[in-house]
């Protein structure tokens, strides 16, 4: 009888352990959101030959701030109301700072990762392009191996979103969705919603191969009444490599409750 009771206990413990293990497996699977598919970018069979036909994007690309073009955004709803509040404050207070995540050393995410005032570097590997922003050493991945772009509601919104690209001749065309709401969209004071779609066209200048063009189209039905187009130009530098930039190394500024940067505590009045 005692033996049966002990066996029963042991079986119960085993049963509970099995449930826990199964649950853990289910949770892990859903967090990783992977279905086991091996896409061409990571496949065992690989050919680097495809890279030979691509344009030369090597070197560091520095944004040319005086060559930013495009049209004006037509804001709607909360985005318009927020912009009007910021614009009114800026008009009366030159020391007003638009609250932004980067003021606190957070990464910029997409799309500001691309034209932050440091360099970007493109790494081409078969089926994938990796973009490194020097500032805060941010990394984004653009899948060019034909994998499908997930539905918006299947993505866990994050800083850089999910980017799928393809080549149209010598132009890299990239679609990005899944960026988390509240990141800078195009200029300080405008931020995206969860419905943002970014289309990028990235290409070398036909006459000057040391110039790179990045054309953006933002579509965000909660923020913009119509697509917003912006153009950027970058100049190539082949002499430098990217330098280390750890923002938390010595970020001496705190933000006040209004999102304004304060002088360091040790010298603050």
């Amino acid at each position: 009888m005692k033996f049966l009771s002990l066996l029963h206990k042991k079986l119960s413990v085993t049963f509970i352990a099995l449930i826990v293990i199964s649950l853990t497996a289910i949770i892990t699977t859903s967090v990783q959101a992977q279905d086991g598919t091996v896409y061409p970018a990571n496949a065992a069979e690989v050919s680097y030959a495809e890279l030979d036909s691509l344009p030369d994007f090597r070197g560091l690309w520095f944004p040319a701030f005086r060559q930013v073009g495009g049209d004006e955004p037509v804001l709607i709803g909360e985005a318009l109301a927020k912009w009007e509040v910021y614009a009114a404050r800026m008009a009366i207070d030159p020391n007003f700072e638009v609250p932004e995540t980067t003021n606190n050393c957070e990464p910029d995410g997409m799309p500001y990762i691309m034209n932050f005032p440091y360099s970007v570097e493109f790494l081409f590997t078969p089926g994938k392009i990796t973009v490194i922003q020097e500032a805060l050493m941010q990394v984004r991945r653009i899948f060019t191996d034909g994998r499908p772009i997930p539905a918006r509601d299947e993505l866990d919104p994050n800083y850089f979103g999910y980017s799928r690209g393809h080549w149209e001749g010598n132009t890299l065309v990239v679609t990005t969705i899944g960026t988390q709401p509240g990141q800078r969209l195009g200029r300080p004071g405008i931020t995206n919603s969860d419905q943002l779609t970014i289309t990028e066209r990235i290409y070398l200048d036909e006459e000057n191969p040391d110039q790179l063009h990045l054309d953006w189209t933002f579509e965000d039905p909660k923020v913009l009444a119509q697509p917003w187009n912006m153009t950027h130009t970058f100049r190539r530098d082949r002499t430098w490599e990217q330098l280390e930039y750890i923002c938390s190394q010595n970020d001496r500024h705190l933000l006040d409750s209004d999102g304004q940067t304060l002088p360091p505590e040790e010298i603050r009045n």
Binding site: M90, A91, N95, E97, V98, T102, P117, Y118, P188, L262
Partner: peptide, 24 residues
């Protein structure tokens, strides 16, 4: 135009400091 100019200044002002603006 003023608002745009301010916004542009603000955008340009990030060009050097980058992780916060010059506003302070």
């Amino acid at each position: 135009a003023l608002i745009t100019a301010i916004a542009l200044c603000s955008a340009l002002s990030t060009a050097v400091l980058a992780h916060h603006s010059f506003a302070m």
